[in-house]
Nucleic acid binder design. Sequence first.
DNA 1: GCTTGACCCTGACGCTGCGTCATCCCCGAT
DNA 2: ATCGGGGATGACGCAGCGTCAGGGTCAAGC
Lengths: 260, 260
Amino acid sequence: MRTVKQVATAAGISVRTLHHYDAVGLLRPGHVGANGYRYYGKEELLRLQQILFYRELGMPLAEIGAVLDDPAFDLLTALRGHRAALQRRIAQYRDLIQTIDRTIASLERNEMMEDNDYYAGIAPETRDRWEREAEAFWGKEAVAAAHEKARALTKEQVDHIRREMADIRDDFTQLFRGGAAPGSDAVQAVTDRHCRWVSHSWTPDAAAFAGLGRFYVENPEFRATYDDGTLPGCPEFIAEAMAIYAERSLGRGNSRLASP
Amino acid sequence: MRTVKQVATAAGISVRTLHHYDAVGLLRPGHVGANGYRYYGKEELLRLQQILFYRELGMPLAEIGAVLDDPAFDLLTALRGHRAALQRRIAQYRDLIQTIDRTIASLERNEMMEDNDYYAGIAPETRDRWEREAEAFWGKEAVAAAHEKARALTKEQVDHIRREMADIRDDFTQLFRGGAAPGSDAVQAVTDRHCRWVSHSWTPDAAAFAGLGRFYVENPEFRATYDDGTLPGCPEFIAEAMAIYAERSLGRGNSRLASP
DNA sequence: GCTTGACCCTGACGCTGCGTCATCCCCGAT
DNA sequence: ATCGGGGATGACGCAGCGTCAGGGTCAAGC
């Protein structure tokens, strides 16, 4: 029989959380003393473990209660729904990140041009505000599309290319986190996709592709792109994979890109 | 001068939102009529566009207010911080998705094997402890990978595998009782079967296979399984056989598992 | 037996960004 | 005069606790 604090510290949660779970009927103490103290036994601790597990999955408390109290509850469906929701959120966040990147880029451009202003007569602030307003007004998609059009590419092409790059980047980071070896089949497969992607605008040979990898390592912008700020060493990992790929698949003239 | 509803429908937000923004001082109407009606002019509309833009980036309203009201505010830093936060969230969600996948997999496996499940007769607590020990020993990734592999098996396959394991265990105990040497041909033949058996869910190299032997010795549950309580020293015997096997047949790259 | 400090309890408000009533006022059209 | 479509101001709700505030309880040392 443990008191609230003992349980809380053991489980890594706060006393208030236990109070809350008691209040909403999610986890009742096994015993309540005459003084009103809550005491938890083994059974309650086990239940708490389960609660915390599902909570970590982002499941709302009410749903957790339903799962634990009703064995007929369709947990599988609930989990799948949860998974889908998480993926939607991830996709949404990725879009947001792209928008932020564009905003940052435009801000930096403006700062860079502050001194020797190319656009004499127009204050950078104003121009910047214009762009943001335009984006807010027509939607970032539309503005982006307009910019891309100027580069003589169709929207679908651009979209496709962007998505492909995002995919590749995600695959790389995930493999890196999973501890995959740069020379492993999985990593090399992604590197192959990357090489094909690069080939949209450029046809690298072995040396050039390996050089691009080194460029990723040395260039802060690219580091930031791949590194995620949370995965130090990921650019090096990618560069290594690219070097291996260059030697294996691009070296000695056995280019896979000769016949696309 | 537009009324709340006009602004709201034009901007795609609710009237309540405008009220809220007014209440928190984020967006004040340009004019307020004698009757209390809010009227918004062009300036306010522009400000609203900016507000909505930053809101879409997931920025809290208070911060948006700071950005718009204080031109000295470090927008770049704020945006970068935001980006990092979003990426952390994405990483977190990806971890959650992985956990969910594992949970779903285990649930499906259990449903598939309702009666005779993998860990029949073993208390969930014990099972969990096993799993944690196994994870500590080989790492989470390896255990998770083994689980994935296991979940793809049909019921008959599982039955077959279990029977095979029982046979192997019997052979081991019989040989041990008969005083066979761990390096003898008979014992090594059984060890070979054992290695193949293990390979159903895992592909060990020499070090890993020998490590599994030590795991059998050190882990009480496995001791109990092999030991039968009547044959002290049997786990050590098996571990020794496995170590020898590992060196002879798995070491120096002459792996039999390279071409299964 | 008394003080002290560590714990325990029960409210109750706060936070985020509005959605959703409820209640009442106002304006133009009929 | 009346009616319908806005408009306004509270106020509660939500999700999951954090964070006081105010007041008992317990074990230990003096």
